[in-house]
Write a protein that binds this DNA or RNA. Structure first.
Length: 571
RNA sequence: GCCCCCGUAGCUCAGUGGACAGAGCAGGAGCCUUCUAAGCUCUUGGCCGAGGGUUCGAAUCCUUCCGGGGGCGCCA
């Protein structure tokens, strides 16, 4: 009939009153073949040999195939899911070795609210890709090699010139203890940045310091290592609390040794050229519709910079990890930069056409003025502070609604933490990654509607039923055919998971998972209200419903984990 | 100047070329001697920025305009 496999795709119907599922493949196929779509749909239905599991199989409108399962067939499928010991997904084919670059944080600087997006979206994306069977490595890719490093070294030299790091005749070893702690950077970093602006002599020292650092001056390297170590420790604390786990704590510095040979080779191969004292790669292509400035591999003073580091990092990821896909969850405003870098990497032959290079960028988190969020004082709110605020607000909500009041203080605090962070992360993930969104913490921690707290609450209610049923000696059993619209709709909802997961992966968009998790939880809530399990008198039906709740909890917990949300035992 | 993104209900946002455009909040009306009311049920609310086009079919693709944001060689 000239059909592709994709024409056979069946999706949950958008018109549930008409059918449970729909297949629109006949429309597209008929168009390609120049056939009548209704006739084609008719032929497809005719060709089905066993239609015993369908309660409806009909053609509607221009050629939609409407499909509904019998309750028996539906229950059989759901029971199959229940009996599996894991959540069923459609595995990626082929599975790909991929690296997701998603930290976006810098050494010597506490992460701020802007880092929430790439961190949480990247983490979620990583988990989604892993769930589909991809071989995924997450790299924080720290900003640890740029001009601020030189500024901090120069600033510290100004303040404590007697430290051995600054003595060029000192032969080492250098102290094991860092001369500064993380908190010192809060003041030092802006002070150094301001001094660079006002004091040309200091600015010169700072830029010489970064050149010397790159060149390998031992004292500077030792000092830099301190800066990096204490920064990583501090960052790990914040990210651990957020549930964001990086496999690699690499950074811009990691590939430093690759730069000279790489640039040399690019010059030899004629990929790079000298221009105005700098070394650049021309990345325009004949049919471009806009200007592509050349990518700079080395500045006119000989120093390398982030564009060259990013190219060398691609080489590193190919050679050491054999990566076949690299996803950069980084601010969309850097899209031109990544286009240039990707083009340069391909032009230099570092990656072939079989390697995916993509920048699924994230938008900004905005304040009420429509601009990236700022505090009243004009600064960018620190991430830790925002997390604490979310947790405090969650605790307030618990208090004022007299919730969890019978639990001890420690458990209440734990619940507040999970609820507050869930609010923050779900507020983030329900939006499409590429758009900007308005940050409204009060709305996120609201206990009503489509929020993180609602999702946790739903999962906890499932746990509660299961616990109480166990207390009464009840056991889950075979899932029986639906008895009403509520258990039927819940079963249908459960079937959507694989499709949603694939779509989220394809678009690199966790919001699809976030929305689906809400819809599943909402469908459960309806079932919960209308099908009272513990007081059900028919034991077969009761066991079936209990099985449905267990399956539902398994799927919801799985989805929430993909969204980096953790469910308390009770709340 | 060139390029990219956005414009959908009062607000915040979803929306995979398909059937009458969705959710949450806010507004209105109900439901707690039964598994957590952080819930459920019902309900009001839209020329999807505007105009052209492609298509059997457009919020979605193309094009022109209007409005907002962002980016454009030695910062990251």
């Amino acid at each position: 009939m000239g059909l592709d496999a994709s024409d056979g795709e069946v999706a949950v119907s958008q018109r549930p009153e008409l059918a449970q599922f729909q297949c629109n493949g006949a429309l597209g196929a008929a168009k390609r073949a120049g056939q009548n779509p209704r006739e084609l749909a008719e032929a497809v239905i005719e060709a089905l040999e066993d239609t015993s599991q369908f309660s409806d199989l009909s053609i509607a409108g221009p050629g939609f195939i409407n499909i509904s399962l019998t309750d028996e067939a539906l229950a059989e499928r759901i029971e199959g899911l229940r009996q599996a010991d894991h959540v069923e997904v459609t595995p990626a084919d082929p599975a790909v070795k991929m690296i997701i670059d998603y930290g976006g944080t810098n050494v010597a600087k506490a992460p701020h609210i802007g880092h929430l997006r790439p961190a949480v979206i990247g983490e979620s994306l990583k988990r989604i890709m892993l769930a589909l069977g991809h071989d995924v490595t997450g790299d924080v890719h720290l900003g640890d090699w740029g001009a601020p490093m030189g500024q901090l070294i120069a600033e510290l030299e100004l303040r404590q010139p007697d430290l051995p790091y600054f003595d060029e005749n000192y032969a080492g070893p250098y102290p094991e203890e860092s001369p500064v702690v993380m908190a010192d950077f809060d003041e030092m970093y802006p002070a150094a940045a301001a001094r660079v602006k006002d004091d040309p002599e200091f600015a010169e020292k700072a830029s010489q310091a970064v050149v010397a650092l790159h060149a390998g001056r031992p004292g500077y390297r030792a000092l830099w290592q301190h800066f990096r170590d204490i920064s990583v420790d501090a960052l790990k604390e914040v990210f651990d609390d957020l549930g964001v786990e990086f496999d690699l704590w690499y950074g811009e510095s990691t590939i430093h040794d690759r730069l000279a040979p790489l640039i040399g080779r690019m010059l030899e191969d004629g990929v790079a050229r000298e221009s105005e004292g700098a070394i650049v790669v021309d990345v325009e292509e004949p049919d471009d519709n806009k200007e592509y400035p050349p990518l700079i591999m080395a500045k006119s003073d000989g120093a390398t910079l982030y564009s060259s580091w990013d190219v060398a990092t691609i080489e590193d990821r190919v050679e050491r990890f054999d990566a076949k896909a690299m996803l950069y969850v980084v601010d969309v405003r850097q899209s031109l930069h990544f286009e240039q870098v990707f083009r340069a990497a391909r032009k230099a032959g570092i990656v072939g056409e079989d390697v995916v290079l993509e920048h699924p960028g994230n938008g900004t988190i905005n304040g009420p003025d429509g601009k990236p969020l700022k505090t009243r004082a004009g600064g960018t709110p620190p991430l830790r502070g925002v997390m604490d605020e979310a947790i405090a607000k969650a605790a307030e909500r618990l208090e004022e609604n007299d919730l969890a009041s019978e639990y001890d203080e420690g458990e209440r605090a734990q619940i507040a933490e999970l609820v507050g962070l869930a609010a923050l992360k779900y507020g983030e993930l329900q939006n499409h990654r590429a758009g900007d969104y308005l940050f409204d913490l009060d709305r996120f921690v609201s206990f009503e509607g489509r929020t993180g707290p609602y999702l946790l609450y739903s999962a906890v209610r499932m746990k509660s039923i299961i616990r109480k049923a166990a207390d009464e000696g009840l056991e889950a059993g075979t899932i029986r055919p639906a008895t009403n619209e509520y258990d039927r709709n819940l079963m249908l909802e459960l079937l959507r998971l694989p499709e949603v997961l694939l779509r989220a992966a394809e678009h690199r968009a966790p919001n699809h998972v976030a929305l689906y998790a809400y819809e599943l939880a909402a469908q459960f809530s309806r079932f919960f209200e209308h099908c009272h399990i513990l007081s059900e008198t028919d034991p077969v039906r009761q066991a079936s419903w209990l099985g449905l709740v267990e399956l539902c909890l398994r799927e919801l917990t799985f989805l929430l984990d993909l969204l980096v949300l953790e469910v308390p035992e009770r709340m």
